[in-house]
Design a protein around this nucleic acid. Structure first.
Length: 232
DNA sequence: AATGACATCAACCGCCTAAAT
DNA sequence: CATTTAGGCGGTTGATGTCAT
């Protein structure tokens, strides 16, 4: 049941040393991956994973890099403009998240997908319920994930977008660590904004947990470590 | 203060496709 | 041409944080 944080014997399992780590990435793993890619570039992920000494699958490394560690990943709240683009492109293409993501620089397909599922789809559902309450048309499906639904939702959603209480540019509910940086021109990451942002604008960055030693760090921690490693 | 419900997001899984052999 | 392998994509899950009671 626990698909995270474990070590699984991989594939054949005959050797016993092809164990594969799963679950959340540790700071050390992130550092290794960032450092390796900074020096060797990305691609050929299986080889990369092995060469870097990571007990991860190539897929896992790729995902981690593309969705989280990549320098140009934009984190933080989706802007109203981005919402609009997502709505429009989804109406056009449906759940082609990677395709949609290409039109939103710095956004990942995973992020857009999550945004859609958690925010927009929920909102569509609400408006759908309201619509069916007032008309007898009836919803074709409670699983609202098709073009028509998003198209119809588009108008409603955009019209009421600014008033949508689940989204606010000033009171972001994203739990990401905001970061803006480049390899060559690193600027200090913005402090992470949590769902508690309404009461605490910028909580202290995550740090390594005393007990587990895992998964409680901010990108600034990672990057300061990187700078230590690289001696700058 | 405890706890249950809900929301969010990172990460895994399975499938598909393209490239390599 | 058939098979294998790797990468990419979309769907789904589970951990965790927040809010409401």
């Amino acid at each position: 049941m626990d698909k995270r944080g474990g070590i699984c014997s991989g594939g054949s399992g005959s050797s016993g040393e092809t164990e594969v780590r799963k679950g959340p990435w540790t700071m050390e793993e992130d550092l290794i991956l960032i450092n390796y890619i900074a020096n060797h570039g990305d691609g050929v992920w299986n080889t990369l994973a092995k060469s870097a000494g990571l007990k991860r699958t190539g897929k896992s490394c790729r995902l981690r890099w593309l969705n989280y560690l990549r320098p140009d990943v934009r984190r933080g709240n989706i802007t109203p403009e981005e919402q609009l683009i997502i709505m429009e492109l989804h109406a056009k293409w449906g759940n082609r998240w990677s395709k949609i993501a290409k039109h939103l620089p710095g956004r990942t397909d995973n992020e857009i997908k999550n945004f859609w599922r958690t925010r927009i789809q929920k909102y569509i559902k609400q408006t759908d319920v309201a619509a069916t309450a007032t008309s007898s048309v009836g919803s074709q499906s409670s699983e609202i994930n098709d073009h028509a639904a998003s198209t119809s939702a588009h108008n409603v959603f955009c019209a009421q977008d600014q008033a949508m209480d689940t989204y606010s540019p000033t009171t972001t509910s994203y739990q990401h660590t905001n970061m803006e940086f480049n390899y060559g021109n690193y600027s200090a990451p913005v402090a992470p904004v949590t769902t508690a942002a309404t009461t605490a604008d910028y909580p202290v960055p995550m740090t390594v947990d005393d007990q587990t030693g895992e998964n409680y760090w901010g990108m600034d921690d990672i990057w300061s470590s990187m700078h230590l490693l690289n001696g700058n």
